[in-house]
Simulated assay, not measured.
Amino acid sequence: MPLNRKKILVLLVVLVAAMQLVPIDRRNPPVTAEVAGAREFLAILKRSCFDCHSNETTWPWYSRIAPVSWMLAYDVYEGREHLNFSHWGDYPGEKQVKLRKEIREEVDEGEMPPFQYYLVHREARLGNQDKEIIRRWATDGETPSR
């Protein structure tokens, strides 16, 4: 016997409510050796990168609603795992060189910040001047003022 629409709706409401019981870790661990640079450079990173690539994530209200909370927590976990500006000084020199190269490539290819992030965070989109500042830092460590 097929379920009627009312039973399906009740089942969906119960399922969504049960999903809210799954705990999500939204803690920001301590910053141990943050990245250094000119004020303008750091402002770009904070605006466009830090939510996923630092321990200074700003968790929006919707990060408390499953299943969106699961996706955000996963993105932050993965981002921190690959590159964490809050631990930049803890990385060995050769890893910093490798990460700088990857950062430059991602910025040049328009991969970072990802499209789905700046759909919600319009201010995170990198302008040409922002990209040039990041490129300079990634290439030779310089972070020129605008």
Rank of each mutant, 00 (worst) to 15 (best):
L9N: 12
E78G: 00
P29C: 14
P23N: 07
C49N: 08
N28T: 12
T139P: 03
L15I: 15
H121F: 12
C52W: 00
A33N: 08
R47K: 15
M112N: 00
P30T: 13
A138N: 03
E81Q: 14
P23E: 04
R104I: 13
I8G: 03
K131N: 12
V14Y: 07
L21E: 06
L99D: 03
I24W: 02
T32D: 10
N55L: 07
P114R: 03
V10A: 14
D51C: 07
N4W: 08
H121T: 11
V97W: 06
E78R: 00
W70V: 01
P29K: 09
Y117S: 00
R64F: 12
A18N: 04
P144H: 09
G37C: 14
D75F: 10
A43P: 04
L12Y: 06
A36F: 08
G127E: 13
R100G: 02
M1Y: 05
R135I: 13
P113W: 05
A36L: 07
H87K: 15
K95Q: 11
W59V: 01
L11P: 02
R5S: 08
S48P: 01
K6S: 11
Y118T: 03
L9T: 15
L119H: 12
T58S: 05
D140Q: 15
G89P: 06
G79N: 01
K46T: 08
S145E: 15
L21G: 13
V68Y: 02
D108S: 11
K98M: 14
L3P: 03
V10L: 09
V97H: 11
P67F: 00
F85W: 05
Y77D: 05
I103S: 04
P113Q: 08
P29S: 14
L12S: 06
E40K: 14
I134P: 01
I65K: 01
K131I: 04
P67R: 01
R47N: 12
R27P: 01
E123N: 11
T58L: 04
S86M: 10
V13W: 11
R100K: 10
L99S: 03
V14T: 09
A17I: 07
I103L: 14
T143C: 08
P113H: 09
V13I: 15
K95S: 10
Y74S: 06
N28A: 12
A33H: 12
R26A: 01
V14K: 06
V76P: 00
E34Q: 15
R122T: 09
M112W: 01
M1Q: 13
S48C: 05
A73M: 09
F50A: 03
G89T: 13
R80F: 09
T143G: 05
